[in-house]
Design a protein around this nucleic acid. Sequence first.
DNA 1: GATTAACCGAGACGGTACGTCACGTCTTTAA
DNA 2: TTAAAGACGTGACGTACCGTCTCGGTTAATC
Lengths: 204, 204, 204, 204
Amino acid sequence: MARTATAQSATTADLPISRKPGRPRDARCDQAILAATLDIVREGGVVGLSIDAVAARAGVGKATIYRRWSSKEALVLEALQADTEPIDVPDYGNLRRELETYFDQLIERFASSGSSDVLPHLIEAACYDAEVRASLDEYIKQRQKPLVAILRRASQRGDLSPDVDRNVMVEVLVGPVIYRRLLTGGRIDRPFVRKLLDLVLSAG
Amino acid sequence: MARTATAQSATTADLPISRKPGRPRDARCDQAILAATLDIVREGGVVGLSIDAVAARAGVGKATIYRRWSSKEALVLEALQADTEPIDVPDYGNLRRELETYFDQLIERFASSGSSDVLPHLIEAACYDAEVRASLDEYIKQRQKPLVAILRRASQRGDLSPDVDRNVMVEVLVGPVIYRRLLTGGRIDRPFVRKLLDLVLSAG
Amino acid sequence: MARTATAQSATTADLPISRKPGRPRDARCDQAILAATLDIVREGGVVGLSIDAVAARAGVGKATIYRRWSSKEALVLEALQADTEPIDVPDYGNLRRELETYFDQLIERFASSGSSDVLPHLIEAACYDAEVRASLDEYIKQRQKPLVAILRRASQRGDLSPDVDRNVMVEVLVGPVIYRRLLTGGRIDRPFVRKLLDLVLSAG
Amino acid sequence: MARTATAQSATTADLPISRKPGRPRDARCDQAILAATLDIVREGGVVGLSIDAVAARAGVGKATIYRRWSSKEALVLEALQADTEPIDVPDYGNLRRELETYFDQLIERFASSGSSDVLPHLIEAACYDAEVRASLDEYIKQRQKPLVAILRRASQRGDLSPDVDRNVMVEVLVGPVIYRRLLTGGRIDRPFVRKLLDLVLSAG
DNA sequence: GATTAACCGAGACGGTACGTCACGTCTTTAA
DNA sequence: TTAAAGACGTGACGTACCGTCTCGGTTAATC
């Protein structure tokens, strides 16, 4: 995914167990490159990230990077995916409470990450690079999963009308938060989330 | 705004008619530069925009650009502002109808502009450059004005509970649209807007 | 010669029939590599020749080439030697006529080969690589043999004073031709050769 | 000459004294670049010369070099030309003696320069690059001038038959020396020169 | 009318990063 | 052990922009 498509699974192989000829890619390189990428991004953002720098820090040739990722954004995305674990919300049997728990964790994450330039940069890159576009979509989808699960549970419970399009619901919940973060630069805190939930859940 | 503050109009001048010594700036340069900027952005997006290119296209020295704008983002922002006129929605006496009208126009604009990289780029630039940050905020504020007006009218009319934080309301309405545009890449059309309004206005 | 000395014939072997263990080298590889080398050199000169390209064209791994030749110059030299056959001049009993015949053939060869970059490249390579130096010297020596033979015959005949250092004579004859070819880029044709022989043989 | 043709004389200018617009090239850059080039070549030959290295040593951007010279060979040639002064031989009224003096100096130069790779490299480069070809021809022509002068004097004096093509004579004298230097690697010393002159001047 | 100061075009300048290419070596499976 | 394939670290390539800096020349207001 966003990886340069070379070492794909042997779809057309005659035998069940086949191998690509030639020297296989060294997994330690992947590790080193991803680690170096995260380091540099954390230090100076995506702007401070150059392929030269990653190569130098990882002790790796530039070609070794380009062999695996087609752009630095694809690289950053993969590094990011490997680094973040999904937000987990237990089943409280109460939609509002679960959403508050979810957003509390989200608030914390945003707070700790500062005003990173990673997401904006990836969004921009996705405009030009279809591969990044796809990877970013996938990344977003993964990160939305917990929220989708919360809503699904609420539907089954009857806390949420079955008429509601859950995808749109997700967007209505997350959209304003992202909007604040990216555009207005407003504070993302409990009062904001409460007002947001008030507005969106008032129908229930 | 975002203009390099050197030759601004003499707002605080002691004398009614004062002038800076030396040759005054040529207004035709401003025009040529902004026009060239819009051309290039429309052709190749902000990525295809370099100061060298703008200077060449406008038939202008690079210094003439740097004398007026501190960065290419400030330049793009000003070019953009000069180019877009605000969405206008008449007073129908009906919140839902006014919002639908507003979003219809928004949909049309998004459709005609394709998937431009301008906004993402500015968002990213705003991460590093405080001046761009301020200009972008101002730009957003301007573009939100019609929506704010719609909500204010509704409040006065009683269509909207006075408890509702109108700023948050704006964010809840616009956020999901921006979210789709920037992140999920989903379609921004009438069905989407209808579902969005259903969700947000259901309390009313 | 210039071959990587690993699998040479067992000249000093104790037993009449001995064999190295392991898989023997495939002679078809030598052929394919040399052929590919000549092809590429003829198409794009030595500049267009990379080991990667030779390997790809010959359908051979790079290691298979490095196992046999220590450098691409050694490879080119061997390919060249296999490709060129010595100039042959019959005994006319007349030094001047024999030399003219020799140079006629030389002119023809130069004409047909265009202004190849092979010799210049090898000369340069010989500056850094002692092995190439030796191989090139050997190659030159081989190609001078017919000329040396002509001069020896002339000496025996008495057409050439025994005081003359035949090696220097060779250099005086060939030097100017090479000089033109490599440095001044002047035409190498019959009038030039005639003037050259007039000058050098005027003593006789 | 071999210079990137940008700052040529104003052939088509209306006025006798015209100037190119824009900031003029900085002559100190030329100096610094040529000096750095000579340094590096003397240390590690042309192989050790990279544009990056020259730029670094000269404290100059790479573009500043590429703006002036189209290739590193053109650069080396100009550096060389600026560095070498012509061999000077007084009028002794005796062809043989003058030639011996000339070659003595030539021997000394070769001896002091070691077995440089500069000339071989330039010869090879001249195969691909017409500009280098022209510059090299010009360089050779300049360096031959003293020898041509010697022969002209001899002609006027009557020491040299007017039938002799002086250009060919130059090639017959210099060719063998170059041939030794480049190809056979033989010693270039007084005995060799004496034999050479014996052969070539025996007609006189 | 001369001076002065900021403007203008053009383009050179020191940098930084780019993505590609070839090098010669190493690591895999298979013969 | 050789073979094909190809990954590996290295290092140079030539290009594109960056933002700054000289140039000669222009255009007003001030002296």
